[in-house]
């Protein structure tokens, strides 16, 4: 993956979620992990990368696609807006709270974008959705609605929905933060599988062991700024910044 951020800021009201972030990631990096304290800007950075929001200042590019430039507000119908919409269709986004559609079955949740966004015929969409649910070991639950599924199953359905169209980039926003340890394990297992299969992934997580195991590159974000970034063995093994050392010391202690 090729990601380039230059001076990216994002402000919500009086809160600076990101302030002047510079970041360059390029091949052969396939899996990028964002770690750091809550409220540090991880989610905002993922939402910008996913094309769900645009920066207030600075510029952000994924591969050759411009995902917003601060001095250039996005108006509907412009080339910029079309580009962002194409970017969203191409990629997959997984939310912390799953955000499945409660009135649709697991199968319908996965098949809906295939049929309506990616233009598959209804039968083909169902078939692909079913194959995708099978892959995440949800074949028996295809006809169930989200309320009938456990949190871990719901997140795997959401993962199937985000993966069914074979996304260029998969973005995972704290995929296991709403799950208990057992369900966390079942979801991380599936994500690790995707990593092994070569899927390009950017994720934020509080699971340090997992980040260390799967990531090619790790970014530590706090107070809207990148404090340190590098290979996982150096960032986890020998952190240079005091803030990173302190954070890792606290979260790894128990």
């Amino acid at each position: 993956m090729n990601i380039e951020l230059t001076g990216v800021s994002r402000v919500y009201g009086a809160t600076r979620a990101l302030s002047g972030v510079d970041l360059a990631v390029s091949d052969p990096v396939r899996v990028l992990a964002l770690i750091g304290p809550s409220g540090g800007g991880k989610s905002t950075l993922l939402r910008l990368l996913g094309g769900l929001e645009v920066p207030d200042t600075g510029e952000i590019r994924f591969d050759s696609t411009l995902l917003g430039r601060g001095d250039n507000p996005v108006k509907s119908g412009t080339a910029m807006a079309t580009g962002l919409s194409e970017h969203r269709k191409r990629n997959g986004f997984l939310f912390q709270a799953f955000n499945l559609f409660p009135h649709l079955t697991a199968l319908e949740n996965v098949a809906l974008p295939l049929a309506k966004v990616h233009g598959l015929a209804p039968d083909a969409a169902r078939e692909r959705a079913l194959a995708c649910l099978d892959r995440f070991r949800l074949g028996d639950h295809a006809a169930k609605r989200p309320a009938e599924l456990s949190g871990g199953q719901q997140q795997r359905v959401a993962l199937a929905r985000a993966m069914a169209h074979r996304p260029r980039l998969l973005i995972l926003d704290e995929p296991t933060s709403a799950l208990d340890p057992e369900m966390t394990a079942e979801v991380l297992e599936v994500i690790a599988e995707l990593c092994r299969d070569g899927q390009e992934i950017v994720l934020s997580t509080h699971e340090m062991g997992f980040a260390r195991a799967v990531a090619d590159e790790v970014v530590f974000l706090a107070d809207g700024e990148i404090v340190e970034w590098g290979r996982p063995e150096s960032l986890f093994g020998a952190p240079k910044q005091a803030a990173v050392k302190g954070f890792l010391g606290r979260v790894m202690r128990w």
């Binding site: 769900l52 919409s85 969203r88 974008p113 966004v117």
Partner: peptide, 19 residues
């Protein structure tokens, strides 16, 4: 979050209302 999920999977505004 429902609107956001619809946007993330690439539905248009009209499709989001409809489905």
């Amino acid at each position: 979050s429902q609107w956001e999920a619809a946007r993330a999977i690439g539905l248009t505004g009209a499709q989001t209302y409809r489905y």
